[in-house]
Design a binder for these strands. Sequence first.
DNA 1: CAGCGCTACCACACCCC
DNA 2: GGTGTGGTAGCG
Length: 553
Amino acid sequence: MKRKWEARLKQIEERASHYEREPLSLVYRPRLSKPEEPPSIWKLFHRQTQAFNFVKSCKEDVHVFALEYKVGDGQHIYLVTTYTQLWFYYKSRNLLHCYEVIPENAVCKLYFDLEFNRLANPGADGKKMVALLIEHVCRALQQFYRVSCSAEDVLNLDSSTNEKFSRHLIFQLHDVAFKDNIHVGNFVRKMLEPAFHLIASEDDDMTPETMGHEFSHFSETPVKQGISFSKKSTDKDMGESWTTNSKKLERLGSAKQSSPDLSFLIVKNNVGEKHLFVDLGVYTRNRNFRLYKSSKIGKYVPLEVAEDNKFYPVQSENISKENQYFLSALVSNVRFSDTLRILTCDMSQNKRVKNFNHTSTSVETIEGFQCSPYPEIDQFVLLLVNKNGIKGGIRRWNYFFPEELLVYDICKYRWCENIGRAHKSNNIMILVDLKNEVWYQKCHDPICKAENFKSDCFPLPAEVRLLFLLKEEEEFTTDETRDSETKNPHEPSSSASSKGTFSDADWDNGIDDAYILEATEDAELAEAAENSLLGYNGIDEIPDELIIEVLQE
DNA sequence: CAGCGCTACCACACCCC
DNA sequence: GGTGTGGTAGCG
């Protein structure tokens, strides 16, 4: 929401200064458009937001490209045109320093930027490393999403110099794409996680085994590039859900022993620090990604099809081979089809583990949107907030480890026991106490909050209690024997098991209302952005059946 | 007239021992 | 010395 607000503010300021410089003409001069003109779209903008606004106003399939135009400070101007028209001018070498702007929230391909300094890595065999990486990526795609592919589906572009080995890989998956490049980044970081362990363990002069265990406790990521991740599940069919938590990471740690050796990915930069061969800085919003046959300004090293490229586009009569490569290299050029599957890999939603220091008391929570790791309890809560024709929903949930308390923020349903009617503008919460097997209601209304209102406790239905007990027992009986095999997907980020891990901390036993406020107060801010959040979740734009979630082995 | 989106890093405040 | 925060230079 903050981002959007800032962007809007900037836009308004720009518009204001524009009108100051060029006031509107006092005379109205009507103009007729000429329908006989071919639909030619070629518009340049100084500002990215203006370019995107123009794209939105166009009914043609236009895209934003960035052109480098000043040597040194890498300044860009933004071009809006169609792929066809761009290729028409581009192929005759009129534009040399062109970048695709991968729009935020746009479905896109899996892509990689790979590089290492040759001098700092005299023994490194770039081609071999690329081949091994592709193998690993294909394995990960198969494991996480059941997507099959091979090196023949990877457009491999080279931009190397004597000093630097440099490649772009663009995966040409069949009827499969990622929801956006942020999700691609999450997937890439997740897939490369064993390599982070390697860097961290070597840096700290620790064995991978001890590191694996150490990592089970991290909540702030100790590794430079960041390794935290998690997933959210909304897909009923898969019904699988896991979150980053101690137990999970411990299992990852042990699973790592059987995971492939990623040490080939570790390279040194020009000052001898260890880094990954894979550049993780290319998965940001509106990332500029260099086009096929473009070079950075000031350099004359365009991206060309690599010697060891194994992707050959299907030949067609009306599209040249070069044009095919050009189109294949465009990350956000995803061909739509009825069977297109959209892959997601979330990390921001379930993950946040809060440390709350309060006179030597710390509390761990996990949080997420829409469905908690307890689908049965979600269903029960939904039942509670669907009454008298009002269709309430779960906007978000929080789980407090020590108290085993699930806090649901409810939307649309606002009935409050305290006032005996629905609130007009404030939302309510349903709290499910798993320890005492009861539920009660609180709310966000300032008056109710001031008097610390909490409804009577009601027992949880027998089915829910029973399910929870069964799960807990299963968890205890199988924990020791289980290594990397699949954990009960409905197990939340480990009520029972995490207590052992975190038991060093001494916390209050009773749930303090301050914690609930801490966990829910920003929900009120988030409320205004609720629609955009839903949009971001893809519910508005992408039909549910097209979304498949991360499948964890 | 005019880029964008970060993250690594630093300075500083605050707390605890 | 550990931890959180806020601002920014500079990288991709």
